[in-house]
Design a protein around this nucleic acid. Structure first.
Lengths: 343, 343
DNA sequence: GCGACGGCCTAGAACGTTCTAGAGTCGTTG
DNA sequence: CAACGACTCTAGAACGTTCTAGGCCGTCGC
């Protein structure tokens, strides 16, 4: 067999089986309207000719696409994990996924444009960076679900993690271990940064640790964590929460180079439960987002919008979970412990 | 605007602009056969109506799909990197990419089936695991390019890294640093494992270090590296090459826990240049595959097959590159150095 | 002044499916 | 016995595009 040969179509199967094209279509779709015996015979022929339905023609005619467009970022372990869940969820509901990746040289607009041309029934965007106005315009044309990013617009559904709560969990854990001098390395201009920083502040206040609250400027990268480490080394706290795992590893490295033992002298908590945080080498205590639930809900929202005419805007907030590993431990005995900042 | 409204079609644009459907098609495709003024006017209208071509109908009619199906594995940083290159390469040649992911609960067969229904013109498979017979059958229906895995079949093109050479580079580097007692932690049953192990053996022989050749059973995971570390600690060499970065990090961790300093006492070389190997925390010297070149060639092979009727089977082998980071250093002074094994 | 030609444009078929409307057959029923 | 309904099947339109064939108009060459 050579590539370039025409693929068998419904017409080929029909001719071979001696029935009409429409009947073959009925059989292939498992729709009512064919006797058991012809059904059998048609399927036999289809199998023999190795017939594969042409989804393009199918969708073109039937209008409904049962296709969900997913935009994800490459080199983003968290997105990979999310894809796994999305495939499962879509599969359960009888939908297909069309993936479009954002890469360093392929921006979100391009990724979305590709999916629009494929006539997806809805879009699921993982951590979209587009301005709200653009997302809203998009949502005027087809259902749009934003994952991990809050979008205040009635046409855009949102599924995200309760980020403040994530930091409550982290701080509670540390306080439970006896820590009081807990700092936070934030994510700079990143979208989720404000929520996490605020969660940290709230949690500290709730524990009456206002006076120990200390936010260090950081960023999403490893080098941001390393920079924060240098700043912290002047007057190290006994524990640090961070914006994400990557910055946490930079921080870890910086602190250790500065002569501190983790978790002996200082505890560190990451955020995201990235795959590398599980490496024995890193073994980072971190806040995990409930990826499966988020994926299931994301797909569900999209499908609801596709089906129902008008849905009210829904923002679903999923509680995170703390994963305790090796970078957190009891607060060191307060030998030489200093009081609150500014004391 | 509500989702569910019909999208504008060529006919809508044509009616609005007062021209025929065919002419609008000509303008949209940038094909010859329209005057500059009408071209302008049609584009104006298309923009105003926010017309988006329906790629399904387009491809259905034109037969040629200019669509490359790509099967990649999720949670596989190397594949993510490859996607970046593939998008670039496809873009340069005017092709689109249709992605289909292999996840823990979605196997390769399913991923491929999805792409076949989309009538891709060719398939680019990243590290396919399918039996050769199946790949060959597939290649009978459309061009198939296997990336990173050698497939001895005339219908399947292959683009892969020269793995033996990768280990030559690693060993040469270590020998250049004065090492002689160099062990190799292999990848067990993994596909590429044999090539890399053999490359190690060849390189050792070439340097006259036959007597120091030492292969330790390993595997692809971190725990495999850790296990190998325990075995090596009994009689540590001064350098180790490994099957991949993940096993190298496990090894690093095990060696350090065993009291050895890296790279002071012992040097370690990984394989793959995974993103985490760049973390300051790990800073692993490793063998990098030339992803961009591979991606470019993979797409090129697919496109050639699509265009040309008969192409001879081609296996393209790309030389790897050594990335020197912090886990390799000069061989320790031979205080207490032992001779070759079995001396 | 006439045919040929080139530039611009259009009508209608085609791609492979699904869908609608209806045709034929048979058994049941009034 | 005619009418009917259920069941099985078919013809042909439709989806939104591209492609082929051709029409119209002005210009050019003779």
């Amino acid at each position: 067999m050579r590539a370039g040969e025409r693929r068998p179509t419904l017409a080929d199967v029909a001719a071979e089986a001696g029935v009409s094209v429409a009947l073959v279509s009925i059989v292939m779709r498992d729709a009512p309207g064919a006797s058991a015996t012809t059904r059998e015979r048609v399927l036999e022929v289809a199998r023999r000719l190795d017939y594969q339905p042409d989804s393009r023609a199918r969708l073109l005619r039937s209008g409904e696409s049962r296709l969900l467009g997913v935009v994800f970022a490459v080199r983003h372990p968290f997105h990979d994990d999310m894809l796994i869940g999305l495939y499962d969820a879509a599969d359960r509901l009888g939908y297909e996924l069309a993936l479009s990746a954002v890469t360093p040289r392929r921006d979100e607009r391009t990724a979305i444009a590709g999916l629009l041309q494929d006539r997806c029934a809805a879009l699921v965007l993982l951590g979209p960076q587009l301005p709200i106005a653009e997302l809203a315009a998009l949502a005027g044309r087809l259902p749009v679900v934003s994952m991990m990013r809050g979008v205040r617009h009635k046409a855009v559904d949102v599924v995200r993690t309760d980020d403040p709560r994530g930091l409550h969990l982290a701080v509670d854990h540390l306080v439970g271990l006896g820590h009081t001098r807990i700092a936070h390395v934030d994510g700079g201009r990143m979208v989720a940064s404000a929520d996490r920083r605020q969660g940290y502040r709230e949690a500290m206040r709730r524990h009456g640790l206002d006076a120990y609250t200390r936010v260090v400027l950081g960023g999403p990268g490893e080098e941001d964590g390393a920079r924060a480490a240098r700043e912290l080394l002047d007057d190290p706290p006994t524990a640090v929460t961070t914006f994400n795992d990557l910055s946490a590893t930079g921080l870890l490295d910086g602190l250790r180079r500065g002569g501190l033992d983790v978790p002996g002298d200082i505890s560190v908590v990451g955020y995201d439960d990235s795959s590398f945080s599980r490496l024995a080498h890193i073994d980072l205590t971190t806040v995990a987002q409930d990826i499966d639930t988020m994926a299931t809900l994301g797909v569900a929202r999209a499908v609801e919008r596709i089906a129902g005419a008008h849905v009210v805007h829904r923002e679903t907030v999923i509680p995170p979970r703390l994963v305790i590993r090796g970078t957190t431990g009891p607060a060191p005995l307060s030998v030489g412990a200093r009081g609150p900042i500014g004391e």
